[in-house]
Every structure is written in C-alpha cells, then in structure tokens.
C-alpha cells in the first residue's frame, strides 16, 4: 500500500468522497443570511423611529443581534440554525456572537479564568487581532496620504 503515490491516492479519495450540494447550500445561506440582515434592518428602523441618534443606530442594531444570537447559542438553537444555513449564519455579526458564546459555555467546566476567560476568544481572538491589525494598517496609510 505504501507503493501507491500520494497523488494517486488523493485522486481516489476525491472520487470516493461525497461533495456537499453547493447550489442548495448557497440557497440556504442566501435566505438565512438575507433574513438576518432584514431583521437587522427592522431593528435599525425601529431605533430610528423612536428617535435614537443616527450615528449610533449601527451600534444598537449590532448589540441587539449579538444578544439574540448569544441567547440562541445558550439554548442550543444556533448550532441547529448553523447546520442548516452554513455561511448564512456564520457571516453575519450573529455568527461572531455565536463564536464567542459557544466556547464560553463549553469550557466553563475548566473554571472561569482559564476555562471561560481564556477560551472565550478561541475563534473571536483571531478575528479581533487581524481586524485591529488591518485597521492600523489602513490608518497608517490614510495618515500618510492625507
């Protein structure tokens, strides 16, 4: 069996491995992702209607969505949604919230410092790190060009 080249075997594996249905996956991601954004729009419009400051509408909207997603994660609903929607529930800000709440719950047995405290960032940590790094790079270039 060791005689077989890795490339040959890789080809065999690709043939034997079932692929997910890309079209169907995309439709599900489109509908759920779109709906989450719609809900975001509803929240924004509501805050606007009740006279909240135009500048902070984004903050309020994100906060409400993050709270809802965190609650759904705790109830065990978000993983079910994610199974159906794939990227449709990963890409919106709700997916970011889910990526923070899920490890926080999972690692509580290891204590509140090195369990919850450290592991809460296992997925969000990289997002924040590279987000901030990129924003600094954008800032430096913007400052030089200004």
């Amino acid at each position: 069996m060791n005689k077989k080249s890795k490339q040959e075997y890789q080809k065999m594996v690709e043939k034997a491995s079932p692929n997910s249905n890309l079209i169907l996956d995309c439709i599900k991601a489109f509908v759920i992702g779109g709906l989450i954004c719609c809900i975001g729009q509803v929240i924004t419009n509501l805050f606007e209607y009740y006279g909240f400051s135009q500048n902070d509408l984004g903050i309020y909207t994100s906060s409400v969505l993050i709270f809802i997603a965190s609650f759904m994660t705790g109830m065990g609903w978000y993983s079910k949604l994610g199974k159906f929607a794939g990227a449709g529930s990963v890409v919106p800000i709700t997916g970011f919230s889910n990526s923070i709440t899920s490890p926080a719950i999972e690692f509580k047995k290891e204590g509140y410092i090195l369990g919850v405290g450290a592991k809460i960032f296992i997925i969000a940590g990289p997002v924040i790190l590279y987000g901030i790094l990129t924003s600094m790079a954008v800032g430096i270039i913007y400052y030089i060009l200004k």
Partner: peptide, 13 residues
C-alpha cells in the same frame, strides 16, 4: 474540533 454550540456544517465525509 470546535465547541458543540458553534453553528457549523459538518462535511459529508
């Protein structure tokens, strides 16, 4: 892998 409550899809393999 990942926390159980993380909303991901498991590939068919």
């Amino acid at each position: 892998r990942f926390p159980l409550d993380l909303g991901t899809q498991r590939p068919l393999t």
